[in-house]
């Protein structure tokens, strides 16, 4: 028994740009593995209508100094490595991280005010301790970002690292550093399709090639604006697939960072009993943020809790299974 069902395949004429993070010895770097994302010409995981040649990957957040405001659950889960970025990164790799997202938090004027020298040393040590690609984030303050990201870009020359965050206010310096050292940038804009596109155009106008740009559309956590990111990412991806070249960059989302800022994850006491077990809730808060963003087009998901890594990787594996559906 069968009926004629209309064909609902979309014919997209756009494709997401393939971006490779990390470089092995034959490309002038030292990474044992590299990661390529993008290349798809379909909405996420719709294998019936197009190709998704690269699976989304999991990056794990590492800080250059022990965070003083993290949830106790995270502190316990990571333990001693929190005070040593190299050990932390190595541990993250063991636990399944495919990319390390290193944050040079100590460079912030209010949190240590370290400079280029310290940045170089941290980047060097993390590179030596791991074999996977690296993303380096500045402290998010334009002057210091310029200082430490330029240093990081130089120190990691040849490694094809990604520099973040490249924003409208500081893009010129960061793009220049990326151009000079053949690194990538993470172009971050605040939850808006137009702003995302504008920054990509500005970066493109500086002649950084498109396979060096990853977009961060800004993540809202579950319960805290997740729906805005969900819709913005869908709109970005639809425009990209419809042929808008300025939006065809792979997307990175910081699900861990955002989920662990929520009240639901930060505290286990003094909250309603209906919120259930603190650890279960927190892990699922991060995991469900990640799942929702994967469904709308995330190519790199940056996570925080070690036990969420296998959960998200299992979901990605399930989503990448191309079992035929009639």
């Amino acid at each position: 028994m069968s009926a004629a069902v209309p064909d609902v395949k979309e014919i997209w004429n756009g494709r997401i740009v393939e971006v490779t993070l990390g470089a092995g010895p034959d490309q002038g770097g030292t990474r044992r593995t590299t990661v390529t994302v993008g290349g798809q010409n379909t909405l996420p995981f719709l294998h019936f209508e197009g190709q998704m040649p690269h699976k989304p990957v999991v990056a794990v957040e590492v800080r250059d100094q022990a965070p003083d405001d993290w949830s106790e659950l995270l502190v316990q889960a990571w333990g001693d490595v929190l005070s040593d970025p190299a050990a932390w990164a190595a541990r993250a790799e063991e636990l399944g991280a495919e990319v390390i997202a290193l944050s040079l938090d100590s460079a912030h004027p209010e949190r240590g005010d370290t400079g280029a020298k310290e940045a170089r040393s941290t980047v060097r040590r993390v590179l030596e301790a791991t074999g996977i690609p690296l993303i380096v984030y500045g402290p998010g303050q334009p002057d210091k970002d310029n200082e430490v990201l330029v240093a990081a870009a130089e120190e990691a020359a040849g490694e094809r690292i990604a520099l973040g965050n490249c924003e409208e206010k500081n893009y010129r310096t960061i793009v220049a550093a990326a151009l000079a050292n053949d690194q990538l940038v993470i172009a971050k804009t605040p939850i808006d399709v137009n702003l995302a596109k504008q920054l990509n155009v500005l970066i493109g106008d500086m002649r950084l090639s498109r396979d060096h740009i990853i977009m961060d559309p800004t993540t809202g956590a579950l319960g805290y604006g997740l729906e805005y990111t969900y819709s913005v990412m869908e709109r970005v991806r639809l425009a990209a697939l419809s042929g808008d070249a300025a939006l065809q960059q792979p997307m990175i989302v910081t699900a861990g960072y955002e989920a662990w800022r929520a009240k639901e994850t930060r505290t286990g006491e003094g909250v309603p009993a209906e919120w259930g077990d603190w650890r279960t809730r927190s892990l699922l808060w991060e995991a469900n943020t990640a799942v929702t963003l994967l469904e709308t087009g995330a190519d790199i998901v940056v996570l925080r809790h070690p036990d969420v890594i296998p959960l998200v990787k299992q979901a990605i594996e399930g989503l990448m299974q191309d079992s035929p559906v009639a």
Partner: peptide, 14 residues
Amino acid sequence: KAALYSLLTLRQNI
């Protein structure tokens, strides 16, 4: 309860 709360929140968001 923890799992349910995360799903109810997600549903409210979307």
